[in-house]
Design a protein around this nucleic acid. Sequence first.
DNA 1: GAAGCTCACGTT
DNA 2: ACGTGAGCTTCC
Length: 818
Amino acid sequence: MENENKVSYAEVVVDVPATPTDRPFDYRIPTTLQDAVQVGSRVQVPFGSQRRIGYVTRIKSNCDFSRVRSIIQVMDVMPPLTEELVELGDWIADEYMCHRISALQAMVPAVLRGKYQKLVSLTENAQAADFSASPSLYTRLKKSSLDWEEVCKLPDVRLSWLREWVQQGKIQIEMKIHDRVTEKKVRYVSAIEPSQLLQIISTLPERNKKQRQILQFFIDKPEPIPLKQLLIEVNTTRSTITKCVEENWLFWEERQENRNPYANVEILQTKPLLLTKEQQLVYSQIERNLFTPHSETILLHGVTGSGKTELYLQAIAKVLDKQQEAIVLVPEISLTPQMVERFKGRFGDQVAVLHSGLSHGEKYDEWRKIREGHCSVAIGARSAIFAPFTRLGLIIIDEEHESSYKQEDHPKYHARAVAQWRAKHHGATLLLGSATPAMESYYQAENGEYRLLELSERVQGRPFPAIELVDMRNELRQGNRSMFSKSLQRELQRCIERGEQAVLFLNRRGFSTFVMCRACGETIDCPHCEITLTYHRTNDTLRCHYCGYATQLPSTCPKCESPHIRHFGTGTQRVEEELLRHFPQWRIIRMDVDTTTRKGSHQKLLGAFGRHEADILLGTQMIAKGLDFPLVTLVGVITADTMLHLPDFRSAERTFQLLTQVSGRAGRHQQPGKVVIQSYSLDHYSIRRVADQNWSEFYKEEYDTRKKLLYPPFCGLVQLLFTHPDQIKLLQITGQIAGELRSALGQQIQILGPVPAMIPRIKDRYRIQILLKFPEEVELIGQIKKKLREIQERSNDKHLRIIIDRDGHFHIPEKLYI
DNA sequence: GAAGCTCACGTT
DNA sequence: ACGTGAGCTTCC
């Protein structure tokens, strides 16, 4: 090769999310790693006095830096990131103002995010006498090496002493990079030549029956077999096999195996269904789009039950025909096993499934199938948008209005925006599907930015369910103080008497299991985060939802010392209790955070309900999505209003979407469905329109409201969140920033705040927010970002963190609600 | 993010 | 003169 002795260099973005390190560093690529290092590779590099993980973002043949060091190691056989994803990382970092490394980390499976461990150990020339000042350290290190953190915690240890001992060569400090990548190993058993086995059998005494049987097994089938399977087939125990291994007749063999979470699930192959006339019309439009070289976004607005999924499946089949790949995003996929089954049923092993119910290892294996080109369809929740495909032809976002497509923590990307970028990059089609599109999506469609396709008929002419609104104020007036209206009770009874099933839906606000003193009303908050602690029944502890702080449940109130301190059970629990009081004979399955934390418990509970092992499924938001059970003919909503009054400009839209979705769960098959919605706000258009099942009327009313109050899509809305460990300093800085923004951009931008963020402190960092509202036609984001970068640089306060939230999916504090 | 440096302050 | 902790720079 010509460039054999030519040195090349790599630009590496190092795993340190801080402003001064938010740029590539140059490293020499050792000749031995020449082939292995590529753009997107995950590498280990020396960084100062430490070792760190980083990603290669560029490869070049020269380097200006005089003291370059070399890459130590490449960590994966295949680079985890493609060149496209590295480029996408730049876009995300810029768009959401985050460090480049954070953007890159967001795109890879969790196991690839390295864990660092600092280990302290004694060297050979360490003597007990050297540690006369800290005998405890010596005795403990004598036994084994210790974690740095633990060493620092020892009472008789000083940092400076440690430093000195390192210099004297008495102790050593190692940085271990734990690669959390684990590949599942399966133990196989193999055997020596059959002819030799035959010989051995002939020498074995008659009474070694099992051993003879095992050897005979390998004579018949000489190929290696998983140990587990062998034990079953010859009906023996592990120790008998071990014996044979010790005799050198058989051998252990470790084989790497992909975990397959769906290995034990039998999935029936399905054939494309015949499309209705309306579906056919829509499909031909989508298909035409798949063959245009440039990217286009399609908004598919189809009523519940109009057969959107079948269209997705057929569009994907077309894409696969063209040797291209497809991503399907669904909200919270673990909750919709039926959906996965449909995809697996149509495309079999070509489908990789990435959902939150999988372990980190399982997720990694699914992801690798994509990276290594063994799969062409990825189906998953939000983060599946980063599936490392190289020939993307189609991206589908089902239920595109769902808020779960917005990443809650930094970088706060919206999967829809990322999808748009990727679709454009590949010239692929982006298909957004929903029965209740997001306001901004529909607005884009009306403006001709998206192509709008509509499905207004249900397949097989199934009727829409009948929706009954119940005014709960009336119930109270009539002396019914239960949480079940007369009407809902009656419907439940009828439904169950008919041998059908019901779903009860409790729309709950916030975190429900908290502790309160009944005497003085005191609640117990996290000392670092100013958020109410959540009660955990399992070990009687209180935990912080944000930082993990845990404490024992006190027996008396810390404020007034009253013993009447109680935790308030989850809403669903109370509903269940009341139901059982009225109707003790009903079988109820309750689904909420308490009953579904264990892996696979979702499927278990849903499975049981599907087999009609219960009459009623009772749950929160989580049961709203994608359930499809033929026997369900009744859906009840206990209180429709809880969501309506959240301080969020989207609350009306969210309520409508949620209620529509829940209603869609009733009567999807032969029996007609019935929906009972209980509410205290019957006059609100969002609840009215659900009952009418009139989306376009809702859209009009919401459109007018947004326009009048100036909210998206009629304005740009950006939330700036500033965090700092020092409250006073943060107040000063944010005040200054607001002033500066006002004088620089105040003409065009409305600046609201600064005010304390919804959670004013998390992990000992105070949080203040400023909201920016501006006319949508002006592209001001660029100017805002420029100004912020300027401020951050000038303030020179490395404790100050600025987080920008661009897609308007955040709560607006009541103070700012206009 | 964290090691390693400088610098100011306090101790012997 | 030296130990100690706090702030600041640097990392290729």
